[in-house]
Every structure is written in structure tokens, then in C-alpha cells.
Simulated scan of single mutants.
Amino acid sequence: MRQRRMMFTAVAAAGITLAAASPAEAIANGEPVQEGRYSFSVKLTMTGIPVLGGGTRNSACSGALIAREWVITAGHCFRDENGVRVERPVAASTVATVGRTDLITSPGGHELEIVEVKQSATADVALARLAEPITDIRPLAVSRRAPKVGEVLRLTGYGSLTSANATPVTHLQTGQLVVESVSDATLGVRGKAPNPDTTPCPYDSGGPFFRESRGHAPQLVAVVSDGPSCPHTDIEIPARTDNLAGWIRDTTGR
């Protein structure tokens, strides 16, 4: 299965090829999130990413606030012009929008620059530090318990609704997928609700997969990492985060 492609816009420079890009994607055949729900969800907007051979591109990813100053997302959202994951913001500007269900009409929320990046050594997961702490949004808790086969997880993201002519949505989307396999660094999940082909799409990379249970706060277990073109009914391969909980705690102080 190939790595999920990151869509981008070439801003300058002749000779830039789409093949040079790679990972991120939104939720196909999901549903809009109700205003104010899942306020820990994050849209990352990257402007002016250097491209091999000259010029720049723009892109976007999704993520989640997991501590007052830290966002979790996919590691491949921070790659240099050679496609190598790096521990720094690669774009001229990387802005995290947090706590805004609709990017155009929702009141409040935050728009903060990313100033530092930490990459997991074992998984396609990165932590991105905000320029200022956010104190009015409850961060998403990071689970230490591995998902089980058959468990239903919820996903949120600001990605496209399809791989064809992909464009990030302005309203946060959500859907549910069911766990079909668990490996050391990844999960295998398949669309469940509202449709069997509810799946991540372009610009959903880094979006949080989390468990929900009555009477308990949601708990992060994985982030969008890899999968086929959307929509699809095949296996999606998110990167596990439950087994990175110690590293996440040491990095964020949470």
C-alpha cells in the first residue's frame, strides 16, 4: 500500500512536478461536525515550503491539540525538499488553527504559528509546538491502551472530500472506522459510519483517531498516515500513538 499523498500548490518555479510531493489527506463520505464539538481538532496551513530545484509550494495537514502548547500530527507533514522528515517547520509559515469548527464562520478559536517540531523515531508521528499556550480548549487525552480488533474509532479532519481535484474543506468533518488489525507501529482500519467508504482524504494527514465512551473524555490512539485514494472501502493504515505515550509525555510535559 502506498503512502498517502500530500497535495500541494506550486507557488513559484518552473519544473516543479507533482510526483515530488508526498503525503496528507480529509474525510470522504463523512459528516460535518456540530459547532463546538471536538474543539481539540487542528488545521495546519503551510505556506512557502521549499521545493527541490527551486520555488515553493503550499500544503495542509490535520492534527489535534494534546497539550496547551503542543499539536500532534503526521511526521511526514514536516519534510524538507528532499522528502526527509525534519525536526523543524519547513514552510516559511506554518499556522495551526485550533478550536474553530468552521474556518470561515465559527467565532473564537486560535491561529498560532508552529515554532518547533519533534519527530518520533519509530512512527510517522510528529509533535509541533505552538508559539503560545492555549488555555481555553481541553486537549485530547493520549491513551496508553492499544486499540483492539473490532473497536470503533472516530476521526476528525479538515481534508478534502475526495482525491479528485482535492481541496481542503473549511468545515471540520468526522466519521468512524473500525479496527481490523494491530501491528507494532500501525493499525489497519476500515470505514464504518456514516458509510462503509468513510475514509481519510488529501489534507487529512495527522488527523486524530480517538476512542469515545460514555462518561469518559475521548482518547487519542492513532493519527492519519497512509492509505489508498479516497473514498475507498479498503484498509487505511494510521500510525499508532498509544505506544508513544511516554515520548509524548516527556516532550510535552503532560
Rank of each mutant, 00 (worst) to 15 (best):
A12N: 15
P107V: 09
R57F: 04
P32H: 09
W70L: 00
G30S: 12
P107E: 09
M1L: 02
R144C: 10
I27Q: 03
D136E: 10
T17C: 08
S205C: 04
G227A: 06
L220R: 01
E180S: 12
V224G: 00
D136I: 14
R100Y: 06
H171T: 15
R254S: 12
V221H: 03
R249W: 08
S120C: 11
I16Y: 07
D197P: 06
D242F: 08
R144Y: 12
I248T: 10
L127D: 08
A217E: 15
L172N: 08
F78M: 02
T47Y: 11
L65K: 02
T94D: 07
M1P: 00
C201I: 09
A239T: 01
V179K: 00
I134A: 05
K43Q: 13
P50D: 14
E113N: 06
M6N: 05
L140A: 10
R144T: 15
P208E: 14
A96Q: 02
V179C: 11
T97Q: 12
D250S: 15
S163P: 01
R85V: 15
T198Q: 14
I235G: 07
E87N: 06
P139D: 13
C230E: 03
V95L: 10
M46F: 05
A14M: 04
A239Q: 04
D184Y: 02
K118S: 04
E180G: 10
P23R: 05
D184S: 14
S160A: 15
E151P: 04
P231D: 14
Q219I: 02
D184Q: 12
V224I: 08
Y158M: 05
W247C: 14
R138L: 14
R249G: 10
C61Y: 04
I248E: 08
L140R: 04
R100Q: 11
P147R: 09
